[in-house]
């Protein structure tokens, strides 16, 4: 005979069982809802990447080398916090650079979650010429991931292309004075605060690229000219008696982290004292890592001086000063950033 106590206990057990069974949809909703949480995390990550320049801001985080990547607090891609959705190409390149960041870095500096989320970031840039450039990092997408898509514009660094111009073709030059071509970076003009950060060149964060096409400046295109040296000079107009002083710099060591000087399109970079003949072009890329060594502020003027050796007789007429300004910035290109989290 069944005891009544057994009956009561069994009833309660059955009720509990029914309760658990009826909770199963709720339990599944709980599992399903982690997908909802993924969406929230993806949204947050998207905001951090697209609307924030990251931390530290100056010197910018993207300038840290692999040994110092621990100093990066947050990886934002925006040009500045005033310009959401406008990304800086240098930050984008560093962010997607293969082998630079470990998955753990993306989790702790961009996703910020307690759970080790899996992720997939992709940025598809559509270039003005119609081609696409896809940057991607992370694992392949499983079904059921959290997702956000942000439409952005990308600011590319400017390139000063110096072709033939009468202003720089100085035919009246005294043969005893070596011709000198100056590229002048006036920081008070470049960092003009009334221009939006999206359309400004900041040589402290953007690489300075100067391409000089020697065609038209050579007296004899077969012999060419000789580029003796490239030097950096600075002036601070706010100081009393402002004048240009030569910046101490390791001019005779080649360091691709600081600058690249190529002559006539050759692959091997030269030092800044090349003393080699130039027949067609000079290309100099000065990286922000070098510019940051020059201790420049928003009032400084930086001169890059290309001095040509003309002994025994004159071989180039290139002489003058070129103003490096933000007109050389290419148009912003459109891109779409996708963040998937699971």
């Amino acid at each position: 005979m069944l005891s009544l106590d057994f009956l009561v206990g069994f009833t309660i057990f059955m009720l509990a069982l029914i309760m658990v069974v009826s909770m199963v949809p709720g339990l599944l909703a709980g599992l399903e809802s982690s997908g909802i949480d993924y969406d929230a995390v993806a949204y947050r990550t998207g905001v951090i990447l697209v609307e924030d320049p990251g931390w530290p801001v100056y010197p910018p985080w993207e300038m840290n080398d692999p040994d110092h990547k621990d100093e990066i607090q947050r990886m934002g891609l925006a040009v500045s916090k005033e310009t959401p959705n406008i990304l800086l190409s240098a930050k984008v390149e560093r962010f997607f650079e293969a082998g630079f960041f470990a998955p753990e870095d993306y989790r702790s500096k961009a996703i910020f979650g307690d759970i080790p989320y899996s992720y997939n970031f992709s940025l598809n840039i559509s270039n003005p010429d119609g081609s696409y450039e896809l940057n991607q990092t992370g694992d392949p997408l499983p079904p059921g991931y959290g997702y956000i898509r942000r439409v952005v514009k990308i600011k590319e660094p400017g390139v000063a292309e110096i072709g033939y111009d009468d202003d720089y073709n100085d035919t009246t030059l005294n043969p005893s004075i070596p011709p000198m071509f100056t590229v002048r970076l006036n920081f008070s003009q470049l960092l003009n605060q009334s221009v939006s950060a999206a359309y400004r060149i900041d040589p402290r964060t953007d690489p300075v690229t100067v391409n000089i096409n020697m065609t038209g400046y050579l007296i004899d295109s077969n012999t060419g000219a000789t580029l003796q040296n490239v030097t950096f000079w600075k002036m601070d107009p706010t100081r009393p008696n402002p004048r240009f002083t030569r910046i101490p710099f390791s001019y005779d060591t080649t360091d691709p982290d600081l600058y690249t000087l190529r002559i006539d399109g050759t692959q091997t970079p030269h030092s800044l004292k090349p003393d080699v003949p130039v027949n067609s072009n000079i290309s100099l890329v000065l990286n922000p890592a070098a510019t940051s060594l020059f201790t420049l502020d928003q009032n400084s003027i930086l001169d890059i001086r290309f001095v040509f050796d003309d002994s025994p007789d004159q071989r180039t007429t290139l002489n003058g000063t070129y103003d490096y300004d933000d007109d050389i910035l290419p148009v912003l290109s459109t891109g779409v950033l996708e963040v998937a989290i699971w």
Partner: peptide, 9 residues
């Protein structure tokens, strides 16, 4: 917002 952003200064 991006359509409202000019491509150049």
């Amino acid at each position: 917002a991006m359509m409202d952003t000019p491509d150049t200064n």
